[in-house]
């Protein structure tokens, strides 16, 4: 009987391996930072949709959709009156429907396959919208921004992705961020020098 229970449990675990989980504390951090990071874009006002900040949360499956709802809740709690006098609209879009996405100011991308992320980025880049990865490893596929948590929280910037879309960001972001070079797939930190390179 005991062995049967253990077997059932382990079988159950194996079915669920390698999927994704999202930690609520990490999403709280993302929710706090997203509007502030958007303000780092010199053309922030051009990215508004009907004078509102429009954030799209891109999800893979129904489980991630509940995570998308969670981050929306965190943003609404943190910025109940909108941000910088602009209303915040948050929409959920599945990776399957990203081709039909209307214009958004910002894309928050939950973890997915390389293909899904690269396909989504074609849309976000066409809209010249900032893209932000929940998992900073997705910067290697071309997502522009993410954060890294060590002893402090540090933004991560994919310099090539930003440059490819001609999005200019404030020097302060590059100064404090860890800069990610997509070609080499290695994170190289040269911080201050790069602020001249991009701006």
């Amino acid at each position: 009987m005991k062995s049967l229970f253990i077997y059932i449990l382990l079988f159950n675990i194996s079915l669920n391996l390698y999927a994704h989980d999202l930690k609520s504390d990490l999403m709280r951090i993302h929710a706090n930072l997203i509007p502030k990071i958007m303000m780092m874009d010199y053309d922030f006002k051009k990215s508004l949709v009907n004078d509102a900040v429009s954030i799209a949360v891109v999800y893979e499956n129904i489980q991630q959709k509940s995570d998308a709802q969670e981050i929306k809740r965190y943003i609404k709690v943190k910025y109940p009156d909108g941000f910088n006098k602009h209303k915040i609209n948050i929409e959920y879009i599945s990776y399957d429907n990203i081709q039909n996405a209307s214009k958004h100011s910002f894309y928050y991308m939950l973890p997915s396959s390389e293909k899904n992320i690269r396909d989504a980025l074609k849309i976000t880049n066409r809209q010249k919208a900032l893209s932000f990865a929940y998992d900073n490893r997705d910067l290697q596929y071309g997502v522009m921004l993410s954060v890294k948590i060590t002893n402090k929280v540090k933004p991560m910037v994919n310099i090539n992705a930003l440059k490819a879309t001609d999005i200019a960001v404030r020097p302060i972001l590059l100064k404090v961020a860890e800069i990610y070079f997509q070609q080499s797939l290695i994170m190289i930190r040269i911080k201050d020098k790069l602020s001249l390179y991009i701006v």
């Binding site: 504390d25 990071i37 929280v153 540090k154 404030r170 404090v176």
Partner: peptide, 15 residues
């Protein structure tokens, strides 16, 4: 800029 840096401190505190 200050607001952005303050936000980084705030989220570092959450972390």
């Amino acid at each position: 800029d200050d607001d952005f840096l303050a936000s980084l401190d705030e989220v570092s505190d959450i972390a």
